[in-house]
């Protein structure tokens, strides 16, 4: 962005001015509107990352669909994972409205050039992990996403309204699984505590690096792609989740966790940001498995997509004839 000499807009920057003024008046930017390249690029990155997270996020939970312990739970989990596929499709469409086709975005994911939420690089080892993901990971996702319903880009904001409604359902089903386990047999309780032990810190990290170290914060706040900082959202998550853990009578794995009467917030111990950067960088327990599952699905499905395209061509040809 250039403000021109001495802060005056350059004469050919009328479009920039119009864009800025829409932001200032809290009006939405829509696909046909002019927008700065950097805004388009940042949004494409963010929305496609979000879409990738939905699609990769199907894997850790999908892992338990075939082993869900009752038909009721199986149906709910299957419907939830199906919702995630739907969210992915919805978000890829929003990203496409910025000019990049879905196949190109997916190719970037498969090439390891695009990121997705790092939380999905952790394994789901027990049934309680399905509960913990719903409760903690979807809980964190909702806190991240509710502000996006008010973000400046229309298609993204509208997609998020619908997605948040479904996510809130997902979180409740996760809490319900945890509640049942926490009130179940001793092995079930132990399973629930173990899941919380393993998912707590990765969930806290889901909001991204601390504000001081975040590269995208300031510009995104200015563009109203982001409305709160990473640390603000993280605090909200902690304040919301600690009392829920208490209701479950489970222990948050942080000996330094305490309530600060003065600030009226919970304070947590130090986050292991080395782990965060290591997993984001590719060295988490399941990074390779998650990505290769997506790449395999894509490669194994190539002949099916080719066939569908070829059949459609034949049909179009015979209709034209």
């Amino acid at each position: 962005m250039s403000d021109g000499i001495e802060g005056r807009p350059e004469p050919d920057d009328a479009r920039q001015q119009c864009f800025e003024s829409r932001l200032d008046r809290a009006l939405k930017i829509e696909p046909p509107d002019w927008m700065p390249d950097a805004y388009r690029k940042t949004l494409t990155r963010q929305i496609s990352q979000h879409a990738h997270s939905e699609i990769v996020g199907m894997l850790p939970e999908g892992n338990w669909i075939t082993r869900a312990p009752s038909l009721h739970r199986k149906l709910i989990l299957l419907a939830k994972v199906q919702d995630e596929a739907g969210h992915g499709l919805y978000l890829y469409s929003a990203a496409e409205s910025l000019g990049t086709p879905r196949d190109e975005l997916v190719a970037a994911l498969h090439a390891g050039k695009a990121k997705y939420s790092s939380i999905f690089n952790y394994p789901t080892l027990t049934w309680a992990d399905v509960g913990a993901i719903g409760w903690l990971v979807d809980g964190a996702a909702i806190i991240n996403q509710i502000p996006i319903t008010r973000c400046s880009y229309g298609p993204y904001a509208r997609a998020m309204v619908r997605i948040c409604k479904e996510e809130s359902f997902h979180q409740r089903q996760g809490f319900d699984i945890m509640w049942t386990l926490a009130h179940g047999t001793p092995p079930q309780r132990a399973m629930a505590q173990d899941a919380l032990d393993r998912w707590w810190w990765p969930s806290v990290m889901m909001f991204g690096p601390p504000d001081a170290a975040s590269v995208h914060n300031e510009q995104s706040l200015r563009w109203k792609i982001k409305l709160f900082t990473n640390d603000e959202l993280r605090q909200k998550f902690i304040d919301q989740t600690v009392p829920q853990a208490e209701r479950l009578r489970l222990t948050i794995p942080d000996p330094q966790l305490r309530w600060n009467e003065e600030t009226q917030h919970y304070e947590i111990g130090p986050v292991d940001w080395d782990e965060f950067y290591r997993v984001v960088g590719g060295d988490g327990p399941c990074n390779r498995e998650r990505l290769s599952a997506r790449v395999d699905a894509w490669n194994d499905g190539a002949w099916v997509r080719d066939a569908a395209a070829e059949h459609a061509r034949k049909r179009a040809g015979s209709e034209a004839a």
């Binding site: 669909i65 075939t66 992915g88 499905g301 190539a302 099916v304």
Partner: peptide
Amino acid sequence: CAWVGHAPVMEEDVALANVALDLF
């Protein structure tokens, strides 16, 4: 339901899940 997450196109993940949900 074992297909979900591994289908040839994402639309098929949704469709296969739908059929499986009906059958369950």
